[in-house]
């Protein structure tokens, strides 16, 4: 008959509210500016931007080359740039390498292409386990990779922001760029899932 223990430290929402009220009280933050910022990233900018980048890379090999060598500029070509996307790196999934992105120190995330991070991305368990047990985390997202695939974890500790370029699903040769973009999910661009992940990636065509 144990009673539920209160755990304010583990609730990012409570902590965020506390920080916000202190900053407002000290005159360091205008709550209206914060609302305007949240509105932009909740309603105008989001993972559909990243999906357009991925679809373009799938259909245009020259664009993909530019994206992998200078991601910030290539992403800007499609109109996406700004806060938390100033210095971008795109990492490509292949049959040999699966990339997974985490920020163990906080919640760094590429806003112009993915919007604001999901709650689980900011949670302590994801941040701790994505580096120490990435295959266990992937399994919980329904992603099982062959032992032959290298799992490559990117810990966003500095000013670079990372976007995963997922593998193009099989049998999508006849789809338009827009239809391809519709297949791309947020989670696949963080690297916790693959696309068409009902089949293991090791079975994909080489």
């Amino acid at each position: 008959m144990s009673k539920p223990v209160s755990k304010p430290e583990s609730d990012p929402a409570v902590r965020t509210r506390a920080l916000e009220s202190i900053l407002v009280e000290k005159g360091l933050l205008d709550p209206k500016a914060l609302d305007a910022l949240v509105d932009i990233y909740e309603h105008k900018v989001g993972p559909r931007n990243g999906a357009k980048v991925v679809a373009r890379a799938w259909v245009d090999p020259e664009y993909k080359k530019r994206l992998l060598s200078d991601a910030t500029t290539a992403i800007k070509e499609l109109g996406f740039s700004g806060l938390q996307g100033e210095d971008m790196v795109v990492v490509e999934n292949t049959p040999e390498v699966h990339n997974l992105v985490v920020c163990t120190l906080c919640s760094c995330y590429p806003w112009p292409t993915l919007g604001l991070p999901p709650v689980w991305y900011k949670s302590a368990p994801y941040r701790a386990r994505a580096v120490s047990d990435p295959r266990g985390v992937l399994k919980e997202f329904g992603t099982t990779l062959s032992e032959n695939v290298e799992v490559r974890v990117w810990d966003t500790t500095a000013e670079l922001r990372y976007l995963v370029l997922p593998e193009r699903p099989a049998d999508t040769e006849n789809l338009t760029e827009q239809q391809l973009a519709d297949l791309v999910t947020r989670d696949s661009m963080i690297g916790v899932t693959t696309l068409g992940s009902s089949a293991p990636t090791s079975a994909s065509k080489h």
Binding site: L29, L83, Q84
Partner: peptide, 20 residues
């Protein structure tokens, strides 16, 4: 610098790189 509602949109679209 205090972030005010009138500059939010410009700040969001240009960002502020920490490159030197």
């Amino acid at each position: 610098m205090l972030l005010t509602p009138d500059i939010v949109s410009a700040v969001a679209s240009t960002g502020a790189s920490a490159r030197v």
